[in-house]
């Protein structure tokens, strides 16, 4: 599984970096992104969904950030 830590990265860069990473993967591969609470966790999963990928899981981490598990679609 691939992983991308985007804590401290604001919109729209967090989405752009997620998108660029997903482009490197094969369909069905998994990517875990770590996102800040607030704007990031509201916007990034949404844009990822819009691009046709699937969100499998969202977990709140200690410290307040979120882990979001994406399956490339």
């Amino acid at each position: 599984m691939h992983k991308l830590d985007l804590t401290g990265v604001a919109c729209p860069m967090n989405f752009v970096r997620t998108k660029l990473k997903l482009e490197e993967l094969q369909n069905g591969e998994l990517l875990e992104v770590i996102l800040d609470d607030g704007e990031s966790i509201v916007n990034v999963p949404r844009s990822v969904k819009d691009e046709g990928h699937k969100i499998l899981e969202v977990k709140k981490l200690k410290g307040g950030a979120f882990s979001c598990l994406i399956s490339k679609g």
């Binding site: 604001a10 729209p12 860069m13 989405f15 819009d50 691009e51 046709g52």
Partner: peptide
């Protein structure tokens, strides 16, 4: 892509994929 510029805004995603 000039990522620095993107940080400043001015580019907004539309509904269609990659647009």
């Amino acid at each position: 892509m000039d990522l620095e510029q993107l940080k400043r805004g001015g580019v907004v995603k539309l509904k269609e994929k990659d647009q």
